[in-house]
Design a protein around this nucleic acid. Sequence first.
DNA 1: CTATATTCTTAACCCAAGTTAAGATCGTCA
DNA 2: TGACGATCTTAACTTGGGTTAAGAATATAG
Lengths: 195, 195
Amino acid sequence: MTETQILNYALNQFAGIDAEAFELSAPYWQRKTYGKGEFYNEYKNVCKYLGFILDGVFRTYYIDDESADEKNVFFFSKNQVVVAYKSFVTQTPCSYYTESMTESTVLYIHINHLNELYGRSHHWERFGRLVAETAFNLAMNRAEEFMFRTPEQRYLELIQNHPDIFNNVPLYHIASYLGIQAPSLSRIRKRMVGK
Amino acid sequence: MTETQILNYALNQFAGIDAEAFELSAPYWQRKTYGKGEFYNEYKNVCKYLGFILDGVFRTYYIDDESADEKNVFFFSKNQVVVAYKSFVTQTPCSYYTESMTESTVLYIHINHLNELYGRSHHWERFGRLVAETAFNLAMNRAEEFMFRTPEQRYLELIQNHPDIFNNVPLYHIASYLGIQAPSLSRIRKRMVGK
DNA sequence: CTATATTCTTAACCCAAGTTAAGATCGTCA
DNA sequence: TGACGATCTTAACTTGGGTTAAGAATATAG
């Protein structure tokens, strides 16, 4: 399959974008590769593009003024959308950094073109709504993890539900994502032995 | 002002719903009062209505199977929308209870009628998108509070940003919302004296 | 295959929240 | 007003994560 076909298939799966609707968008998609550590979108930048990850892993993180260390907020991997959602929909500066953690390849589309597609096809309107719902679910799941689960439970659920992330990201990034320090994650892992 | 006028004004502020668009919806809104402790929507129920709070305060909470105690997730108060968003948009059973904490009055609309309005007017489509964005912001803010702030910081920010909630809700509900136990909140409050 | 950098674990000590139970305070209604 | 229920605080102890720094394990490159 070509990259375009992969995209077409994924958009069809995600939002029922059919061949005709996909054709409308075809001129607008562009391709970009990112090196490890390269930014998809930086702090204080307005996120203007919605990306679809053909390959690679991205993280969005927050830098705490006080503790000065990075806190991982989301991971995005292969066949997922990558975007700084709030910044994208409101076109305001982003509070986060979104960075490629590996060599990555992305197909992306400009917000203006996306807005144009919304007006041209119900399929794309539907796509816009589903992206909103996906963003809501991501944020809500994250809130629920912290409200209802202990760090140990979050760790176990990450292994269960996102082995793709767990197996491709250094543990100190996992710790940050779980909201704890690296030594605490080590203690948790030690505790688990034999359970 | 009549209650309908209050609603009309609020919807105009929120999503630019004009007189004509509001007229479309007028037949669909219904009014209901809730007593203290009465449920807007219960665990395992599908949320079928989107409500606008004329007066009162609601809370949505989760019951932890293990600890068996209630964890407050959101508060909703006067002039806000109350809805179990995920359940509402997906029409699936809700994981939460949403309960009135006071005598309350709500104007509500059925999801079928709302969907009908989406098709009939761009103003209402816009409304739907803004509700989605509001829900995303609520969830994301909640996640950020837990990821980036200490319980003490969360407490201070709640007082600053939501005095309306803080002043009308017992402290043990506040503690639950902050993700801590009542004795911990007492200790935080004691620490604060003199700061 | 070693040297080096990166990542992971461990140890020791600190501190804040959890837990449980008792007691103080506040509100409300008979 | 006085008594009850609801709410809030306090105390004593436990537990688990934070912090810092050192060392072990693993990857990577020369």
